[in-house]
């Protein structure tokens, strides 16, 4: 039994002119401990797929099994990190990180302690009382990560978390993400990472799912066998990049 099983998922949205088919026949399994990247052209339904997996967008047909069970409603063991950070501007860093803890039934003192731990882990020690608008983009996304990690999820779901950041900040945060995933005291087992940056997917993931648009579908599911830490300048890295590029370009 796989950790996550997606079975023949399709999704249509109501549009001005009838229904728009956004996803069709999405089927794949994720094994426990896997870091999966989903790449594909803009509009192919990557974000929608991610939201179907954690249950905040209902699918039109198909099935998502989490550890062999179908989850009713929202799967709180999947925590989402947003491209736009999606922090509540009127809440302090600490209150933002505590957002998901009330739902877990933690008492206030416990929430505060837990938030503190993860604020430290993402390197924002001392910024507990700051407000999002006082932070740089990189720091905001650190809050986004802390908020997701604080619920101690089994699956971390990333929707282009580095796309709104400058290149240098993105590099640092990618490294930290790998550290978090590999660190034994983190409950996070799996990461599902949506991105349109192919190099990012190859650098981070065990496995890359390549999608095409109209309707969104899987065109290739390939393992990344490169040893970690991965060197972006290595020949094998570039060869794989070229391969994924051509897979995407082929389908236009």
């Amino acid at each position: 039994m796989a950790f996550l099983e997606l079975k023949n998922i399709s999704k249509s949205f109501a549009h001005a002119k009838g229904m728009l088919k956004v996803l069709e026949g999405i089927t794949f399994d994720v094994e426990e401990g896997e870091f999966v990247a989903i790449v594909g052209p803009s509009g192919c339904g990557k974000s929608t797929l991610l939201r179907i997996i954690n249950g905040i967008v209902p699918m039109s047909s198909g099935q998502v099994l989490y550890r062999g069970r179908q989850v009713d409603g929202i799967n709180l063991e999947c925590a989402l990190v947003f491209q736009s950070f999606a922090l509540l501007p009127w809440l302090s860093v600490k209150a933002n990180v505590e957002l998901g803890l009330e739902a877990q039934g933690l008492p206030p003192a416990e929430r505060e302690k837990r938030a503190g731990i993860y604020i430290d882990k993402v390197g924002l020690d001392g910024f507990e009382e700051a407000y999002p608008r006082e932070l740089s983009g990189g720091m905001k996304q650190r809050v986004g990560f802390a908020r997701a990690l604080a619920v101690e999820p089994k699956v971390l779901m990333l929707d282009e978390p580095f796309s709104a950041l400058d290149a240098l900040t993105a590099i640092t945060l990618r490294e930290e993400l790998l550290d978090i995933w590999q660190s034994p005291d983190m409950p996070v087992k799996n990461i599902v990472h949506v991105t349109h940056i192919i190099e990012e997917a190859i650098e981070l993931a065990d496995r890359i799912i390549v999608m095409a648009a109209s309707p969104g579908r899987i065109v290739k599911d390939l393992k990344v066998e490169l040893p970690r830490p991965r060197d972006r300048r290595a020949e094998a890295f570039n060869a794989l990049t070229d391969k994924v590029f051509s897979l995407i370009e082929e389908r236009g």
């Binding site: 939201r51 954690n54 905040i56 929202i74 709180l76 999947c78 925590a79 989402l80 947003f82 736009s84 999606a86 509540l88 009127w90 809440l91 957002l99 998901g100 009330e102 739902a103 877990q104 908020r147 619920v151």
Partner: peptide, 26 residues
């Protein structure tokens, strides 16, 4: 109210009243 904030509130399991209190009313 921005769509991503509404999504975040739901994804992190906020109850209806918590959603009103922390997101919609502010």
């Amino acid at each position: 109210v921005p769509e991503d904030l509404k999504e975040a509130a739901r994804a992190f399991g906020l109850s209806r009243t918590a959603r009103w209190r922390k997101l919609i009313l502010p």
